[in-house]
Design a protein around this nucleic acid. Structure first.
Length: 271
DNA sequence: TTCCAGGTATTAC
DNA sequence: GTAATACATGGA
């Protein structure tokens, strides 16, 4: 299947630490799962090619990659601030993937005090062991014992994931309740899951629920925001969060992705 | 070998 | 409220 995608940076989209289920192939394409279907994505200029045994619909692909969204408000913020232009120049077309809410919730429980490489490893092992190749449903993880998850290599996060999965499996409306809540209420709900604090809660809302006002503050966000907007002074996560809300409002989460990737890739100053 | 990684939960002032 | 500490594990 070929899809017209004139403003998509596939590499930055799949390798900016927002999604953990994609593996880069030698030819620059990516193998992963889209709405439960195993596919390969490859971009050549404005043409996006999707291959696989069972294809998602073009509509599903466009929705998943957020291709319909007009990013001009985000680009305006990045273009009009000299401090941010380098990340726009390098990664224009980076889009926030509209992930499955449960997968985002689970993966970001695994992300705490962890590195992207190993989160990807955990994702792959969970998918192979419990999901027949796709990321396992909450019910499949709920059925596991903590021991099984530790054997997969989840470490101390195993009980957090097991308990969160059990809650979601036993409360079928849990995720819809989050979706229909206003932002602060949703934040409180997500933060109440075991293993989820303020940073991961914002990741879940941003990547799993499309709440673009969410602004996850991790070590990279502290570094780059301190460097760019606080003259290198040490500042609290809360202070950084408020600054982002003030500057970028309902687009803060989208700007955050450009900040995060730009900082990690070295095109933005981190002090 | 030691250190670090998209933090969180717990405990102590 | 703010500060210190343990937590599993793979890669550098």
């Amino acid at each position: 299947m070929r899809i017209q995608a004139t403003d998509l940076h596939l590499e930055a989209t799949l390798e900016s630490g927002q999604v953990f289920g994609y593996e880069r192939c030698a030819d620059g394409s990516y193998r992963g799962t889209l709405r439960g279907k195993r596919i390969t994505l490859s971009a050549r200029g404005p043409a996006l090619t999707v291959t696989g045994p069972v294809l998602p619909t073009a509509r599903e692909v466009r929705d998943y990659l957020d291709l319909e969204r007009d990013l001009s408000p985000v680009y305006a913020w990045l273009r009009d601030d000299p401090r941010l232009r380098p990340t726009l120049a390098a990664y224009r077309g980076l889009r926030l993937i509209r992930q499955d809410p449960w997968e985002a919730l689970a993966c970001f429980i695994l992300s705490s005090n962890n590195n992207v490489k190993r989160i990807q490893l955990m994702h792959a092992r969970l998918s192979a062991s419990l999901g027949a190749g796709a990321f396992p449903a909450a019910s499949a993880i709920a059925r596991c014992h903590e021991r099984t998850l530790r054997d997969i290599g989840l470490g101390y996060r195993a009980p957090y994931l097991q308990r969160s999965a059990t809650y979601v499996a036993n409360n079928p409306h849990a995720l819809e309740t989050i979706r229909s809540a206003d932002f602060e209420e949703a934040r409180a709900l997500v933060s109440s899951y075991p293993g989820i604090g303020p940073k991961v809660a914002d990741c879940v809302l941003l990547y799993g629920f499309g709440r673009y006002e969410a602004f996850p503050v991790d070590v990279w966000m502290l570094r780059v925001m301190r460097s760019l907007y606080f003259k290198g002074r040490r500042v609290s996560g809360e202070r950084v969060y408020r600054e982002a809300q003030k500057r970028w409002g309902k687009w803060a989460g989208y700007v955050q992705q450009y900040l995060f990737h730009g900082a990690r890739m070295g095109v933005l100053s981190v002090g």
